[in-house]
Design a protein around this nucleic acid. Structure first.
Length: 476
RNA sequence: GGCUCCAUCGUCUAGUGGUAGGACAUUGCCCUCUCACGGCAGUAACAGGGGUUCAAUUCCCCUUGGAGCUACCA
C-alpha cells in the first residue's frame, strides 16, 4: 500500500521553524517512499484562525519547495462530514449531549485539582437520554457533544519512540464537538485522516497524549489504525519550546534575511535527524534519498543560528554562478546590470565570500562605485607618502603595459607579484588594493583588478595617485 | 499534583557490552597587503547512584534534571 501523509497546520499564528520542520519530515518521508503528501488546514477554531496566517504558512512552504500533492482541504468547509460521523457515534450510543456550563466545569476542575486528584469530567450528563437532550436543545439550551471514553489501556508503536501506553480512564469523556458541524481537534483529525486515507501521522511530540484519544475514536467509528511518529521539538536557547514571540521564528523572515531554501532544508533536516554516513552539507535530493524515520532523534534540539549561516555559505558555494545571478538579479540596483561581464566576474568573486545572499549588495557595491576614502588610507603601515606614490606609479605603468586580452588572473598575478616581491609586498599590494577598493578591508588586489577590468582599474589608480600628490602638496 | 516522553563536548550529533568519532562555535598556527575563504592543530561530553557482567557510555532499576500534555486551542 502506498504511503500517504499530511501536514496539518492550524493558521493561528506565524509559521515557525517547528512547523516547517514537521512539514519537511512529512514531505521527506513521502518523497523517500514515493508516497503522497497532503496539506490540510485545521481551521476549526473560528476565533483564532486567520487567513493571513494560512497564506504565510503556504508561501513559506512553497519557498522551501513543499507543496500539497492533492487539493488543500479546509476543515472549516467540512461540517457535513463531521456531522455524519457524530451521528454515527450517537446511533451507537458512544456520544451524548452535555449541558454543563463552562463555569460548572471550571469549578469541578478546580475542586479536583485542590484535592490533588487528576482532573477529568465527572460524567454528570452521561445518562441524559437522547430524547430528553433533544427537547432541551429545542428549547434553546446550549450543549456540547461528548465521547464515551472506554476505560482501558491503549498502546501504540511510535515510529520514533517505540511502544507508548496510556490509560484512557484518566481522560474522562472528552468533548468532540461544539455542535454537529463544529468538531474539535481530536475528532476532526480522526475523520479527516480516515477520509483522506492517511497511513502515517508524523507530528510534533505535543500531540503524543492526543494519540490514545484519537485511537479510541477510530475504534469507536470502526476506522483502521494509522501509524504514528512524534517528532521532538526544536527548542530555543532556553531549551523550551520555541515560543511564538521568539525572534525570527517566522520562516519567511529567513528568506528575507538572505538564506537559501536548500540551506534551510538542510538545517531543519539536521535538527533531529542525521544521515547514516557522517556528512553535514546535503542537497535536498540527497536528504530525500537518505531520509529514514529510524534515524530520527528522540530528544529536543536547540536551534543553532551560526550553523545555519555556515550551511548557507556552503550551499551558496554549491550553486553555479549563473544560478546565483538569477537569484540576485531582482535585488541588485539596475545600473549594476549595465556591464553584464563585470557583474558576472563580481558574482564569481563574491560567491566565496557570502554567508547570506543579501550581503552581496553591500559587499559588491565597491565594484560599481568607488567609495570615498582619505589619502592616508593608501599608506601601508610604516611607509612614507613618497614611497607610496612611487609604488603606485610603477604599478600603474605595469598595468598599462598589459594588453587587454592578457588581462587575466594568472598574467596579473605574475606581473604584480613580480613588483611586489621586489619592492616589498605590503608596499605594493596595500596601496594598490586600497586604490582599487577604497576600503580598508576588501578582496585582494589581483582579484579586484580581474573583476574591475583594465580600464576601470586604471581610472581608480590614477585617482589614488592624485590623492597622494594632493597630500604631498599640502605638506610642502 | 497526575500522565507521557527525554538525557553523549557550549550547540547539532555518531557510536558500541571492551581506546568515545564528526560538524558548528571557540582557541592557536599556516596561507596573506587587509578582510573573508581555505588548510592544519588544540580545548571540550557519556547527569548521579545502584544493579547484571570478566567488562556498562551502551542493558535493567532508582534518583536528579529537562520537556510536553492535563481546554467548548490545535
Amino acid at each position: 500500500m502506498s504511503i500517504r501523509v499530511r501536514f496539518a497546520p492550524s493558521p493561528t499564528g506565524p509559521f515557525s521553524l517547528g512547523n516547517a520542520r514537521t512539514a519537511l519530515f512529512n514531505w521527506l518521508f513521502a518523497r523517500h517512499h514515493k508516497g503522497t503528501f497532503l496539506i490540510r488546514i485545521e481551521d476549526t477554531d473560528k476565533e483564532r484562525s486567520k487567513k493571513e496566517y494560512e497564506e504565510m504558512a503556504l508561501s513559506a512552504l512553497k519557498w522551501l519547495g513543499i507543496e500539497s500533492d492533492e487539493p488543500i482541504i479546509h476543515q472549516s468547509e467540512r461540517g457535513d462530514r463531521y456531522a455524519h460521523y457524530v451521528k454515527k457515534l450517537f446511533d451507537t450510543n458512544q456520544a451524548y449531549y452535555c449541558f454543563c456550563t463552562s463555569e460548572e466545569l471550571e469549578a469541578e476542575y478546580q475542586a479536583q485539582m485542590s484535592q490533588g486528584i487528576a482532573p477529568k469530567y465527572g460524567g454528570k450528563c452521561r445518562h441524559i437520554k437522547k430524547e430528553d437532550a433533544e427537547t432541551r436543545l429545542e428549547k434553546g439550551e446550549q450543549a456540547t457533544i461528548r465521547f464515551r471514553m472506554p476505560e482501558k489501556r491503549i498502546a501504540f508503536t511510535d515510529m520514533v519512540r517505540g511502544k507508548v501506553e496510556f490509560d484512557t480512564a484518566l481522560f474522562g469523556d472528552i468533548i468532540i464537538a461544539k455542535s454537529l458541524t463544529e468538531p474539535l481537534y481530536n475528532f476532526a483529525v480522526v475523520v479527516d485522516d480516515y477520509e483522506t486515507q492517511i497511513t502515517h501521522v508524523i507530528r510534533g511530540e505535543d500531540h503524543t497524549p492526543n494519540t490514545p484519544k484519537q485511537i479510541a475514536l477510530q475504534e469507536a467509528l470502526g476506522f483502521p489504525q494509522v501509524h504514528y511518529g512524534h517528532l521532538p521539538f526544536i527548542l530555543g536557547a532556553d531549551r523550551k519550546k520555541l515560543s511564538k514571540r521568539t525572534l525570527t521564528s517566522s520562516m519567511l523572515d529567513y528568506k528575507e534575511q538572505g538564506y537559501l531554501a536548500s540551506a534551510m532544508i538542510n538545517m531543519l533536516a539536521l535538527l533531529g535527524w542525521h544521515p547514516e554516513k557522517d556528512r553535514e552539507v546535503l542537497t535536498t535530493e540527497e536528504i530525500i534519498n537518505e531520509f529514514d524515520m529510524k534515524r530520527v532523534q528522540k530528544a529536543g534540539a536547540v536551534f543553532n543560528p551560526e550553523k545555519l549561516d555556515w550551511l548557507n555559505m556552503a550551499h551558496i558555494k554549491l550553486m553555479s554562478d549563473e544560478t546565483l545571478k538569477e537569484l540576485l538579479v531582482p535585488h541588485i540596483p539596475p545600473e549594476w546590470k549595465n556591464d553584464k561581464d563585470r557583474l558576472m566576474r563580481v558574482i564569481h568573486l563574491e560567491k566565496n565570500r557570502m554567508r547570506k545572499i543579501n550581503e552581496f549588495i553591500t559587499n559588491a557595491k565597491l565594484f560599481f562605485e568607488l567609495p570615498e576614502y582619505p589619502a592616508s588610507l593608501l599608506l601601508f603601515k610604516g611607509t612614507t607618502t613618497h614611497d607610496t606614490e612611487s609604488s603606485l606609479k610603477e604599478t600603474e605603468q605595469f598595468i598599462k603595459n598589459i594588453s587587454e586580452n592578457e588581462f587575466n588572473e594568472s598574467a596579473l598575478n605574475e606581473k604584480i607579484m613580480g613588483i611586489a616581491n621586489e619592492r616589498g609586498r605590503g608596499m605594493v599590494l596595500w596601496p594598490l588594493r586600497v586604490a582599487l577598493s577604497g576600503k580598508e578591508m576588501s578582496p585582494g588586489p589581483i582579484e579586484l583588478l580581474t573583476a574591475l577590468g583594465k580600464k576601470e582599474s586604471l581610472v581608480r589608480i590614477a585617482h589614488a595617485i592624485q590623492k597622494i600628490e594632493g597630500a604631498l602638496r599640502d605638506r610642502s
